[in-house]
Simulated assay, not measured.
Amino acid sequence: MKRILVIRRDNIGDLVCTTPLIRALRLRYPAAQIDALVNSYNLPVVAHNPDLNLACAYTKAKHRAADESLIGVTWRRLRLMWQLRRTRYDLIVLANGGCLKRPLRLAKLIGAQHVLGFYDASVAGADLIDLRVTEPKPRSGHEVEHLFSLLAPLDIQPPAGPEVLRPDPAEQQRACDLLQAQTWYATRPTLAVHISARKPSQRWPVEHFIEVLKTLAAQRDVQFMLFWSPGDEHNPMHPGDDRKAAAIRAGLPADFPLLPWPTSHLQELIGGLSVCEGMLCSDGGAMHIGAALGLPIACFFGQSDVTTWRPWGVEHRVMQPASREVADVSCAEALAALDALWPAISARRAG
C-alpha cells in the first residue's frame, strides 16, 4: 500500500472522528502517500493534519458561493477527480458510517487497485468494494470505534487512538494576540462558551448562559471567549446567533472578562478554541473540534445518541435531560459539570 486515499465527505464532527483512522494508517504504512478527499466546508479540519501528505476538497453544490455557478462547481469537481485518478491509488478507504452511494461514485471516478469500506449488497455500486467489512447492526460504541473497525482487513486492530487536529498557525496566533490584548487578560484559565446549535433541541437559553458566566466569574479566577455562528437566526440557509450573542453580552457587566469570537469560517473556530483550556457547548461540530484539541468539555445533549457522539478521548461531562430538550438543563447542573471538570481545566492551564 504505497498510495492511499481516505474519502470522508460528511459533517465537521464526522471528519474529526475520522482522524484516529488516518493516524492508524500512518502508523501502519509510515512511508506511504496518504491523502484525504473531503468537502470544502470541512477542509480546515485536515488542512494541517501531520498524518496526511495531501488534503484536497471539492465543493458541494449547496456550499457554493453566491458568485459560483453549478456548472463551474461541477467542472472543478470532475477536474479534481481526474487529477486524483492520475495518482493511481493502491487503496481507497470509504470512511463513512455505512455503505453510501455518493462516496462509491467518487471512488469509481478516481479508481484504485483496492477499495475498503462497509459493504451492503443492496446498495448500487457496492461491488466496487473488494475489502469488505460487515457493518454491525445495530451499531454500538463511539463513531471513532465504528470507523476504526474498517481497518481490520489491513490487520490494524483496536483500540483507536486520540483525534488529531492542528490549528492554522496564523489563526491561532491571532486568537492568542487578541486575547492577551484585553485589559482584563491574565494568565488564568480561559473557558470557551459556544452558544450556537443547529437543532432547536440542542439550544440553551440566553438567561442560563448569563447566569452561569456570572456565577463562574464570581467563584473562580477565569476568563471567557464567546463563540457563535454569525448572522440572522431567520436565514434559512445559514442561520446565525448574532442576536443571542448580543443579548448575552448585554446581560453582563461592561468590564466582564469575555472576548466575543464570531466564527464565519471553520479555521477561525479552530484557532480560537486552541487558545482555551475548557469548553461549555452543545453536541455538534464545535464540540468535536474542542475534543480533538484536548479541551475538557461540559456538553449539552438533546436528541443525539451520547454513546455514539460523546467527546472522544478527553475529560467530559454530559448533560442530557429526560425530555431530550437542552433548554431543560438547569444552571445548577451546568455549574456542577464545570466544577467536576475544573481540576482538568486548571491542569491544562498549568501545563
Rank of each mutant, 00 (worst) to 15 (best):
1 M>E: 05
5 L>F: 13
6 V>F: 10
14 D>K: 11
15 L>K: 05
15 L>G: 03
15 L>M: 06
15 L>H: 05
17 C>H: 15
18 T>P: 01
19 T>Y: 13
22 I>G: 00
26 R>A: 07
27 L>E: 15
27 L>G: 04
29 Y>T: 07
33 Q>G: 05
34 I>E: 04
35 D>H: 15
36 A>T: 09
43 L>V: 06
45 V>G: 04
45 V>I: 15
46 V>W: 05
47 A>H: 05
49 N>R: 08
52 L>F: 06
59 T>P: 08
60 K>C: 06
60 K>W: 06
62 K>Y: 00
62 K>T: 02
62 K>V: 02
68 E>W: 11
72 G>S: 12
73 V>I: 07
76 R>P: 04
78 L>D: 09
78 L>I: 10
83 Q>M: 07
91 L>Q: 01
92 I>S: 03
94 L>R: 01
94 L>P: 01
95 A>M: 08
95 A>R: 02
98 G>N: 12
98 G>A: 13
108 K>M: 13
112 A>Q: 02
112 A>R: 01
115 V>L: 07
118 F>V: 01
120 D>G: 05
120 D>V: 07
123 V>I: 15
124 A>Y: 10
129 I>A: 00
129 I>E: 02
132 R>L: 08
136 P>S: 12
138 P>S: 05
141 G>P: 00
141 G>S: 04
142 H>C: 07
144 V>P: 05
145 E>G: 10
147 L>M: 13
148 F>K: 09
148 F>Q: 04
149 S>K: 15
152 A>Y: 07
159 P>N: 03
161 G>F: 03
163 E>A: 04
165 L>W: 13
168 D>Y: 12
169 P>S: 12
170 A>Y: 08
172 Q>M: 12
173 Q>C: 11
174 R>N: 01
176 C>W: 12
177 D>N: 10
179 L>F: 10
181 A>G: 13
186 A>E: 14
186 A>W: 12
189 P>N: 04
191 L>W: 10
193 V>D: 05
193 V>R: 01
195 I>K: 03
195 I>G: 02
197 A>M: 03
199 K>A: 03
202 Q>M: 11
202 Q>R: 15
204 W>M: 02
207 E>I: 13
214 K>N: 05
215 T>P: 02
216 L>W: 15
216 L>H: 11
216 L>I: 11
221 D>P: 05
221 D>A: 14
226 L>D: 01
227 F>G: 00
231 G>N: 03
232 D>V: 04
238 H>Y: 09
238 H>M: 06
240 G>Y: 08
247 A>C: 08
247 A>M: 08
248 I>D: 03
254 A>S: 14
255 D>R: 14
257 P>N: 07
259 L>R: 02
259 L>E: 02
267 Q>P: 10
270 I>Q: 03
275 V>F: 12
276 C>R: 04
283 D>V: 11
289 I>P: 08
298 A>T: 06
304 S>D: 03
308 T>V: 09
311 P>M: 06
314 V>S: 03
314 V>G: 02
315 E>K: 13
323 S>P: 04
323 S>L: 13
326 V>I: 14
338 L>Y: 15
346 S>L: 09
349 R>L: 14
